[in-house]
């Protein structure tokens, strides 16, 4: 009897009184509602302010279409490039010890802390008319800045660390025993990667890819510096939103913005799904008795 009483007391001591719990939850939810739910709701409400027809009309506009197309192209180039880099960097950093490793890890993170505007500016300095390669590029009639290649480069820069950052801690935690076993058993390097490493990191990889993709499609600052804002040619969706908004075409601006908001929601949904699957797999492998093989 007295034992259960003490237990209850201890239980009460490791959580809060009910009114405190409720007000903390309430305050947190209020904050989330004001700062996250309302802005999200505002995008869709403003887009549909003049009805569904006006909304669809705004999306049918040729300039909107070319912005959507350019955004897809940019992401389709930038994400695979950073995917290859992310896997290579994670392999080098997680599987080996070498001098300067922590410096390399810091440098991989660098683009995260550089302002997007600065990221765009450096490409103007390298490839712009007054830049390092400017005269040569002009002589050979190659356009990089204020054209699609510049937009892709700036996007690659700002999304540079996304996949590497997901993979490095994951591969460090997993160690390299399984890969070593595969190599000792006679597998080639590629076989080991495809059959051993990739299945182990697939969720982390997918996680990095969708975050990288969301940022690649939504990047504004860096792309804004290098794009030149040529309507129908070098406008990505976020830049098109800005132009429409500044022309007081509110419904059209929010209509294009709503597509980007949908992209964000889909990204969050996939992200939650990956976390759920990952947790399930951990549970499944924990409940399997270790002496029995998994299959």
């Amino acid at each position: 009897m007295s034992q259960t009483l003490t237990a209850n007391k201890v239980q009460a001591g490791t959580t809060e009184a009910r009114w405190i719990r409720r007000s903390l939850i309430g305050l947190a939810l209020l904050f989330m509602f004001l700062f996250l739910v309302l802005p999200l709701a505002a995008v869709f409400t403003e887009a549909l302010r003049k009805g569904l027809d006006a909304y669809l009309e705004a999306l049918k506009e040729p300039d909107a279409w070319s912005a959507i197309r350019l955004t897809l192209i940019v992401a389709a180039v930038a994400v695979p490039l950073n995917l290859v880099f992310g896997v290579a960097a994670a392999w080098a950093i997680a599987k080996y010890e070498f001098k300067g490793k922590s410096l390399l890890t810091t440098l991989v993170d660098l683009p995260f802390s550089v302002s997007p505007v600065v990221a765009g500016l450096v490409y103007v300095l390298v490839f712009g008319a007054h830049g390092w390669f400017g005269p040569w590029l002009q002589a050979n009639d190659i356009k990089i800045v204020f054209a699609v290649p510049g937009i892709i480069l700036a996007t690659v820069f700002v999304t540079f660390p996304f996949i590497a950052r997901e993979l490095i801690p994951l591969m460090q935690a997993q160690g390299s025993e399984e890969e070593q076993a595969a190599i000792v058993l006679g597998a080639t390097g590629w076989q080991t990667f495809w059959r051993v490493t990739l299945p182990n990191i697939k969720w982390g990889l997918l996680y990095g890819v969708i975050l990288c993709n969301a940022r690649a499609m939504g990047e504004f600052g860096a792309v804004s510096v290098v794009s030149g804002h040529i309507r129908g040619q070098t406008n990505t969706m976020p830049l098109h939103v800005e132009i429409l908004y500044n022309e007081y075409q509110s419904v059209a601006a929010f209509a294009v913005a709503s597509l980007l908001a949908l992209l964000a929601l889909v990204t969050l949904a996939i992200k939650s799904f990956i976390e759920w699957r990952h947790a399930q797999e951990i549970q499944a492998s924990a409940s399997t008795p270790p002496e029995q093989p998994a299959h």
Partner: peptide, 26 residues
């Protein structure tokens, strides 16, 4: 709770320009 947890990452996923115009609209 699961929904709120997922929503925390919205600022990572929502393009900044969209956040900008919708906060302004509010």
């Amino acid at each position: 709770k699961k929904f709120v947890d997922a929503l925390v990452d919205l600022p990572f996923a929502l393009p900044t320009a969209v956040a900008g115009i919708s906060l302004t609209a509010l």
